[in-house]
Design a protein around this nucleic acid. Structure first.
Lengths: 243, 243
DNA sequence: CGCGATTTGTGCACGACTTCACAAGCGCCT
DNA sequence: AGGCGCTTGTGAAGTCGTGCACAAATCGCG
């Protein structure tokens, strides 16, 4: 009975991280009226190597047709199933400051499988405020609302000083996945997943590459930007930096 | 003469991605009055393995003392030098919608080596607006301002439909590093670095793990969350999910 | 019905990254 | 001065991810 669905294979983490990108590209293709797509075309739209794409898709039980390509609608269903997006997941957002406001109003969550079910803040001055059709609750109300709304995912958009405390409260309220925008490391029990997004870190990584590029052109030119191997610098493939 | 500074070693990309996290932890330690720190302690504060930390630091020419640890202030200087943060880098932010507003007001950029030098938007209704002490300019003014302010880093916070066009304009204006918040793949010439941050993708990755956890407890319990190997689930180390 | 064009799925080799385990080095205490 | 404990730096092994190159499979057409 529970073996009806193709039991989740344990995908490589790198593959999981790319599936959402494939999904986005597929939705785009579907809207453009495409019925099928080759691995080459889909890989191009997702910004990856076509062999990598095929290997990724093969991990979730191949649904392509040789000589033809992949059925766009079928592949969308498959990936959405694997990612657990067949149900719309409820998300709690904690911290409605500068960034939290923007996240609460971000349309991308709603259109890609998520529903912001509740907003929380510790500042009584912010409690009661209406944002995008939702009212900000006090963080003390988290347990009851998390229970009532079946919230399993939490987003932390508080200052770093409050983040660990908020994480503890989220875990206590039954949250098992956390997206952390605060610039700090969180400690959570086993079984709870944490992903971190730090905007300043992304810029610092870019800064390193700027520094490297600048030091290269300062050296006696040897195979740097000055020697363009392929003729004119083609507006071609994106330069991959990091993951 | 130009060999005075320890010429940039080409660090592994994975190391570069972790250096900013070390830097943040080091600043925190310095504020707490710590003078030196062991690899074990710093690794804990940064959420990584201590062997990994030592290898990362060894790549930039070891500045630790055996039996003692690392000099906090010296290490901060080293990492900031390698990341190119000795100068405060000017950043252009394009798109002052929902997310752009939040980014323009984000204090973390200023405190970690960056200066938002200009805001741009294509919507005439938004041009002229004051945000956080800056006035929003029209995107057509980008070339002159980028030149005047020596802007080499651009942040794209526009809708996906506009992102490629904005990227082209940024590159034409001399920008060589782009941080892209729009959910799409950018094509840029060689020599231009792009990093992408997609908030919905992060949630979808968490959703996958939720789905996996849910399907595990649905199966006959075999080594899942039910069998706690180390006694009580200690509020210990963070569970690493992806990079 | 058979053949060629096309595209998937994958074995294999390579490279990157991680982790362990330990020798080498440093400071402190006696 | 000498020895001991602590910590770094790194060789080596293991793991993970990537990309090539090709066999297998499918469709369309004559």
């Amino acid at each position: 009975m529970s073996q009806q669905v193709p039991a989740l294979p344990d995908l490589p983490e790198a593959t999981v991280a790319r599936l959402p990108e494939y999904l986005r590209a597929l939705h785009h293709l579907a809207e453009s009226g495409n019925d099928t797509v080759s691995s080459e075309a889909l890989a191009g739209a997702a910004g990856v190597n076509s062999a990598k794409l095929r290997k990724d898709l093969s991990h979730l039980g191949s649904y392509g047709t040789r000589g033809v390509g992949y059925d766009v609608a079928l592949l969308i269903d498959q990936i959405e199933y694997v990612l657990g997006l067949t149900q719309r997941r409820a998300v709690a957002l904690v911290g409605v400051g500068n960034l939290g406001h923007a996240l609460a109003g971000y349309a991308g969550f709603g259109s890609r499988g998520f529903r912001i079910a509740a907003l929380f803040d510790a500042d009584p001055g912010r409690v009661g405020e209406h944002i995008n059709g939702l009212v900000v609750r006090h963080i003390d109300e988290l347990p009851e609302i998390a229970e009532a709304e079946s919230i399993a995912i939490g987003v932390i958009a508080t200052p770093a000083t409050a983040a660990q405390s908020v994480a503890d409260r989220l875990v206590a309220a039954g949250v098992t996945s956390i997206l952390n925008f605060a610039p700090c490391v969180l400690s959570v029990p086993d079984g709870v997943d944490v992903r971190k997004v730090d905007l300043a870190i992304e810029l610092q990584i870019l800064s390193f590459h700027e520094h490297r590029k600048a030091s290269l052109i300062a050296l006696p030119a040897a195979g740097g930007l000055t020697a363009l191997p392929g003729g004119l610098a083609a507006t071609g493939t994106e330069e991959a930096v990091g993951s």
